[in-house]
Amino acid sequence: MSVPVKPSHHTESNVSTPSNPAAASQSPDAPLSPGIHSFEVGGITQRYHVYGSGPFCVVHSGGPGIFWDYMRMPLLEQHLTMVYVEPIGTGDSGRLPSHPHGYTRDRYSRFLEVLINHLGVPKVHLLGHSHGAFVAAYHALYRAERLAGVVLYGGAPVTGPEHGEEAGRRVQEFAAKHAGHPGLADVLAAFGAMSGMSDDESTVAVARGVLPSYFANYWDNEERFAPIRDTIRATYISGMDEDLSPDLVDDRAALKGLEVPALMVVGRHDVICGPRWSQELHELIPDSRLVILENSGHLGHVEEPALFSDAVRDFVLQTTGSESDTAR
Rank of each mutant, 00 (worst) to 15 (best):
R143H: 12
F111Y: 13
H99I: 09
E173W: 06
L112P: 00
M82H: 07
R143E: 00
H99S: 11
P122Q: 09
V171Y: 01
Y138C: 13
Y84L: 13
L96Q: 02
R170L: 13
V85T: 05
H163E: 00
R169H: 07
Y103C: 14
I88V: 10
A156P: 09
H118N: 06
V124L: 06
R110A: 11
V150M: 07
R107K: 09
G128N: 12
I116H: 00
I88K: 08
A144I: 06
S109H: 06
V85L: 05
V135D: 00
A167S: 04
P122W: 10
G132A: 14
G89Y: 03
R146Q: 12
R110S: 11
V114A: 10
S93C: 08
V85Q: 04
R105Y: 00
G91T: 09
S130I: 11
Y153Q: 08
V124M: 10
L126K: 04
K123T: 10
G168W: 05
G154T: 05
G102W: 01
H129P: 15
H101Y: 12
V124T: 11
Y138D: 06
E162M: 04
E166I: 04
I116V: 14
G160L: 01
A137I: 13
F134Y: 13
G155A: 00
D92Q: 10
R110F: 03
Y84Q: 14
E145W: 04
L126H: 10
R95N: 05
F134K: 14
H129F: 07
A133M: 14
R169F: 03
V171L: 13
V121D: 01
Y108A: 07
Q172H: 02
A140F: 13
I116T: 01
E113V: 13
H118E: 03
P157S: 08
V124E: 00
M82L: 14
L152C: 10
R146S: 05
V151N: 11
V121Y: 02
D106K: 15
L96A: 03
A144C: 08
M82N: 06
L141D: 02
E165C: 07
T81P: 12
T81F: 04
R169S: 14
G168V: 13
L141T: 05
V114L: 12
R169M: 11
L141H: 10
H99V: 14
P157R: 02
V124H: 02
G154V: 09
D92R: 15
V121Q: 05
T104C: 10
H131K: 15
T159N: 06
S98D: 02
A144N: 08
D92G: 08
P161T: 03
F134N: 04
G89K: 07
A140Q: 08
V171E: 00
E145G: 06
G128C: 15
Y142E: 05
P87Q: 07
R170A: 13
R169L: 10
K123W: 01
R107G: 03
Y84K: 13
T90G: 05
L96N: 05
V124C: 14
R110H: 04
V151P: 05
A156T: 14
F134L: 15
G132L: 02
N117K: 15
G128D: 02
L112C: 06
A144T: 09
R143V: 12
S130K: 11
G168F: 01
G154C: 06
K123I: 11
S109Y: 08
G89Q: 04
